[in-house]
Simulated scan of single mutants.
Amino acid sequence: MRQVGQETLDRARAGDAHAFRELVGPYQHELQVHCYRILGSLTDAEDMLQETLLAAWRGLDGYAGRASLRAWLYRIATNRCLNAIRDAGRRIPAEPTPPFTPTEPSRRTEVTWLQPAPDDPADQYHAKENFALAFVAALQRLPPRQAAVLVLRDVLDFPAGDVAEMLDTSVTAVKGALQRARAQLRQTVEPAPPAPRERELAQRFADAFSAGDVAGVVELLTDDGWLAMPPAPHEYVGHADVWAFLTMFRQWRGDRRFRLVPTRANTHPAFGCYLTESGGTTGYPAGILVLEPCGDRIRTVTWFLEAALFARFGLPAEVSAC
């Protein structure tokens, strides 16, 4: 555990911004990942990180040193996230208006604020089991305090007493919330078996999707595979419904061409999706596709429709589709 230097702490309390950055700098990234898990949105996580740092700067005199600086910062970040959820009532993005009439979805989701996060395989805070898109999405369906307890206890391994102090509650309440959250998570998140040929599977998907080969895409899905498109609430489950949607989409697409640029998101293979104008050769952002492999097939295709995500993934604003 990193120790706080008293001299550095004293300088920060005296208003030395450089000393403050020295104190909190090692924790900024993991705090942002923490906020992302609870909020499910990169945009909101960035906002909450800044609010956390500002609150820490203003409240540094109140840090008595009984808990580690890391735990103190997590307390601030967690409560800022919970306050944001409560105050905003889960800010729901506006549902996009599709350029064609889509087929009737199998179901609709309320979790439309979900965003993917760029993947860094070397990042210790992006461990596969607690950074996967399905896990982050499942957290959004838990009561917020249960989600916070689950992350603090099972992901970050804070002791129950520390979590109780962070949330101004009792250890008994923490244990109860954790038990309920674990039970709910077991019902909604099914661990996927390893995909030893993940890269080949992703390439086969990219080839079929780019070519408008609906049968080829559907063939790669598990029997219960599904397609989601945040921030649209539509979800298509099963081969027949995914087939119907992609067929209508292919008809709307016409002679325009796709190019998929590989990236990674939430430990999964992903693609920046670019679409040309009719007769054109330059592709423009058309969303980010994130695949969840399951053995030798794909369980979920999540097509995030926000063009603003491209910059976060370091993807270009346009590509040649030739």
Rank of each mutant, 00 (worst) to 15 (best):
Q50A: 12
L49Y: 02
Q50R: 14
E46L: 00
T52V: 05
G25F: 03
A56W: 04
E30I: 04
G62C: 04
H29C: 05
L49M: 05
H18C: 01
L53F: 09
A55H: 12
H29I: 01
V24Q: 00
V33P: 03
H34G: 05
Y36R: 06
L54T: 13
R37V: 00
V33E: 13
F20M: 02
L53M: 08
A45N: 05
R21T: 08
R21E: 10
A45I: 01
I38Q: 14
Q6H: 13
L9D: 08
F20A: 06
M48Y: 02
G40I: 02
A17I: 09
M48V: 10
L49F: 03
G59A: 07
G62Q: 09
L9E: 08
T52L: 00
L31K: 06
E51I: 00
G25K: 02
R21D: 13
V24D: 00
Q28R: 15
R13N: 07
G59E: 05
W57I: 00
A55Q: 10
R58A: 11
L53G: 11
D44W: 07
H18G: 11
G62E: 09
V24N: 02
A12E: 06
W57T: 12
A19K: 06
I38W: 04
T52H: 04
E46D: 11
E30W: 01
E46R: 11
A14E: 13
G25A: 05
L60P: 10
F20K: 04
Q50E: 15
A17C: 01
V4S: 13
S41E: 02
R21H: 13
E7T: 15
A14N: 14
L31V: 04
L54E: 14
D16P: 06
E30V: 11
L23V: 06
G15Y: 04
Y27T: 01
R58Q: 15
V33T: 11
A17L: 09
G40F: 04
G25W: 02
G15H: 02
L23F: 03
D10E: 13
R58N: 13
Q28C: 12
G59I: 02
Q32A: 10
A55C: 02
G59P: 04
D47Q: 11
C35A: 15
E51V: 00
R13C: 06
G59H: 07
D16S: 06
L9W: 08
L60A: 10
Q32I: 00
L9I: 09
L54S: 14
A55N: 09
A56P: 10
L42H: 03
T8I: 14
A12P: 09
A45G: 08
I38N: 14
E7K: 13
T8D: 12
D61M: 00
L31S: 10
E7A: 15
S41R: 04
G5M: 10
V24K: 03
F20I: 01
D44H: 10
R11I: 03
E46N: 06
L49V: 03
Q28T: 14
L60G: 09
H29F: 06
L42K: 08
